[in-house]
Design a protein around this nucleic acid. Structure first.
Lengths: 182, 182
DNA sequence: CGATATATGTCAATGTTGCTGTCGTAGTTC
DNA sequence: GAACTACGACAGCAACATTGACATATATCG
């Protein structure tokens, strides 16, 4: 596999990109105690994010091929595992892909017995999704593979770095989705 | 959109998922002063990474469509901008894609006047690549869009969090590629 | 009850970005 | 001149996403 991660665009900050005209969007700080990041810092952060994400997703990719699945399947398995009984619409909102795109992947997973559906008892239009036992096992294997890299990195960097890591990532997420990560 | 999450409660922290059997891979710590991250922490970090990356890459996507370009074009523009005069072989080594894949994207960019070629004076088999003025401007716009989100997040979280953010990401990257990010 | 809205599924076409394999051509090196 | 190198091009394939249109079941409201 080793294809590229979900995305992979690296951006650079050009000469005139000193910006600082775009701040104050989230968690506004009281004073000017927070100096703007330099172009170099932003570029470096961008590249770190790119390479870290690529290697992180690569860990799971190598295992997924054994099942004949790809990254799209992994994302579905992961979020259904995290939210058992989630319905299709909510899953779409998390993944931010189209219904048709999800349909193909979800159909394959259901035909393979990895995901099962059950109509919601209250609103029977809704199809609640659950992992089969086999899928739970597969998810665990994938999680362990990815968690190994993360675990190593978090321990090596230490708890304070880990807290900063989480704080920055959280601030990068669109506000409406921040609550999804605890 | 806007449907809210279902939030299941199963942590799927399996019996064997406690890991800790996979450490010591990179940057081994001296003592045991670094406690292992819990499954919950690892899971949260995974999700933060997913959502932050999803939103981050989305910023550039929205601008790229105006040019009729995609992520692959962005990557080429970025790396040629970072390494003016780079030749095709070196660009391939960075992107880690096949010559045929690059050829399509590079051809489009050259036909559109975003990238220009010049034969190396010493070895005229080599084609050195450069950005046109228009491509430099486009690259700047893309950079600013993506850097905006990063800038805001880094400032909101503060310099110490930013340092932790970088430390963890760097530790996640395969050692051989860490040098690519300064 | 009937109209309307919602949740989901499905068919068809298309685009982007990768891949493998093969062949050609210009230029360099020995 | 032979062998190697850097690059380009043609052909086909696959994964994952898109848009658009349409179908079906269920819910809700007047």
């Amino acid at each position: 596999m080793a294809s590229d991660p979900v995305h992979g665009s690296i951006t650079l900050t050009g000469p005139g990109a000193t910006n600082s005209s775009r701040d104050g969007a989230a968690v506004p700080q009281p004073g000017s105690t927070r100096p703007p990041a330099s172009d170099g810092e932003l570029r470096q952060a961008t590249e770190l994010l790119f390479f870290a994400y690529r290697d992180f997703t690569g860990d799971a990719d190598r295992l997924l091929v054994r099942y004949g699945f790809g990254r799209a399947h992994h994302r579905v398995i992961y979020f259904v595992g995290r939210n058992p009984g989630i319905n299709v619409g909510d899953l779409l909102a998390i993944l931010k892909i189209t219904k048709q795109s999800l349909a193909r992947v979800l159909g394959e997973l259901m035909r393979g017995g990895f995901i099962v559906q059950r109509a919601d008892s209250a609103d029977r239009r809704r199809r609640r999704l659950y992992l089969s036992d086999e899928a739970v096992a597969m998810e665990r294997m994938l999680s362990e593979a990815q968690a190994g890299r993360l675990q190593t990195a978090l321990r090596a960097a230490g708890p304070e770095a880990a807290a900063g890591f989480r704080a920055v990532l959280r601030a990068m997420i669109d506000p409406r989705d921040r609550k999804r990560c605890d």
